[in-house]
Design a protein around this nucleic acid. Sequence first.
DNA 1: TTGAAAGCGCTAACAG
DNA 2: CTGTTAGCGCTTTCAA
Lengths: 357, 357
Amino acid sequence: MAAAAGVSATTVSLVLNDVESRISRETRDRVRSAAEAVGYAPSSLARGLRQRRSQTVGLISDQIATTPFAGRMLAGAQDVARAHEKLVFLVDTGGDRAVEQSAIRALAAQQVDATIYAAMWHQIVPVPDGLPADAVFLDCRPDAGGFRSVVPDDRAGGAAATRELVAAGHRRIAFIDTDEGPTRPIAADLRLEGYREVLREAGLRVDPALHVHGETSIRGGREAAEHLLQLPDAVRPTALFCFNDRMAVGAYAAAHARGLRIPHDLSIIGYDDQQFIAAEQEPPLTTIALPHYEMGKWAMEVALGIRAAEEQDATHQMTCPVIRRDSVGPPPAHVAKPNRRRTSHHTERSLSATPER
Amino acid sequence: MAAAAGVSATTVSLVLNDVESRISRETRDRVRSAAEAVGYAPSSLARGLRQRRSQTVGLISDQIATTPFAGRMLAGAQDVARAHEKLVFLVDTGGDRAVEQSAIRALAAQQVDATIYAAMWHQIVPVPDGLPADAVFLDCRPDAGGFRSVVPDDRAGGAAATRELVAAGHRRIAFIDTDEGPTRPIAADLRLEGYREVLREAGLRVDPALHVHGETSIRGGREAAEHLLQLPDAVRPTALFCFNDRMAVGAYAAAHARGLRIPHDLSIIGYDDQQFIAAEQEPPLTTIALPHYEMGKWAMEVALGIRAAEEQDATHQMTCPVIRRDSVGPPPAHVAKPNRRRTSHHTERSLSATPER
DNA sequence: TTGAAAGCGCTAACAG
DNA sequence: CTGTTAGCGCTTTCAA
């Protein structure tokens, strides 16, 4: 290439990197057009070797690529990487620790300038051996200190969801939680906290009967909701806060099966704002969005040193916005009235069940 | 490092790369343990520079990371890359041609050993300028010849779906297609072809009244299905083949709204086997799976030269397997009977509509 | 069985 | 304003 333009390699380098304008205008043009002609592009490898930084960043994830949920984190990370002319290595470990280890090694050998360690859902993860000290944790928190990390603010999200319902006038608000168990997501506890907090704030009783569990699926949501909807009038909830959108979809089914209209007879709010699901329900589901794109962006910005994390050892909580659609409304008028015994003269539709499934 | 082990760099290289066993056993051990102790890992950059291949592959996609559908293609590609000690650069262009261009350049500068160009859904794409001639197209076909590519065999998939219904005894099988329009996916035409082919094969009439269109969403599927279900008895379909699972979910809603049970009164088959959706319906949806993981695997294998594409210029059609769940059954007994006029004494439930939405 | 020398393609420091 | 020199960390002859 240097030859093609009839100049030294140094000059080519200087021109192509816009190092000051110490090079004469005509030389610059000559180099530029020669490069164009030859289709020359400097080798990032050689440059990386020389400059000791590769302009690449490694992104290790447990399952992002495998699962349809958190892809937008990648998009967020990519977008800022691209804006800064960085290329990203993606390694999906499938949750396998051995794979993770070799990924860390391989990335180090590639001299990546930064490392992001991402999880598919909000969780606490053990810090893998050999992970660079400046790695950023995305959608997870390391079990050891000293790292930057970003996670959704699930407590505030749970609070926001509940507040949405309280603001609409509901006083009997149920929380359809995921199963207990060793795999219980940390997000569930956080959302539950937010839920309770707002209830108390609003002077409402935290009724254990309104906190039910189900498997994290459409069916789980339906079963839990069915249980709640057959409660006696006096305690039956008028609004359901579901752990996620899939469970909310199940709650829709339970409501429909009882002839309950949403939001007229029952309000429902979900969590996740799952693409192609939440917005497509009838009526479209009001829900809390997980800020995946924003978290991905934040992580990459911090990793590249474009944005400083507040503190070295703090986990950044990112707001989960309320997505208002049409599944939340005021409670049915009659429920505001004082207790009525379950004497069987209910609202016109509350028990007109319809066969389903 | 060479120093740490008290040998030359050459020896270190030889040992760590298992080049013959010309090195004495004890020297090897010494080098290995010194490397371990120092935490030494050879620089892939330097090695790449020297060997003129970087052990990396570039994967350019329009939207894989943004959308929840095709992530498993990444997983498939990753898995084979990892098995061959390759790292993959992922660039999600968001469909922006300019970004795509710079990605191609950046990848070339990184000396990637192979390039994969992936789309989020089966389509014909223009070949981007500067794309290496040995690039492999994943889930799309280039509009110019000379490239290897892999796509799902949507025609066969459409045929398989229809055959599933025919085999169950259905004779009036509708196809709920996506909207027409400039964005009409190529897959739609292919699946339609397969549908018609099997109908003819089975000696069934291809009734245009049973080919309806809707927007590609739950709502679109519901509306199209509603239309079909209110057709007069004589022509009303007993089975619905839906363009995708989301539309099938809409069809479920339409069926339930009319009090029809699936598959007892109506059989439904979808397409995509969308994760966390298809299997969670009630009853679980029988559908055709898109072989995303397999296609990703194939593309990477071909790109790395591990597997030879049949012909240089052929597009590989990958089978879409039938996922049998519970939404397909035999048609209701009465429909086999000769024509009955819409004299209004229908089956016990066929018109007992139930309020919905 | 091992080491010395050369060079992959670039850029940083220094001359000119 | 431009070229020379050196060297990033490795692998590959070639020699010892």
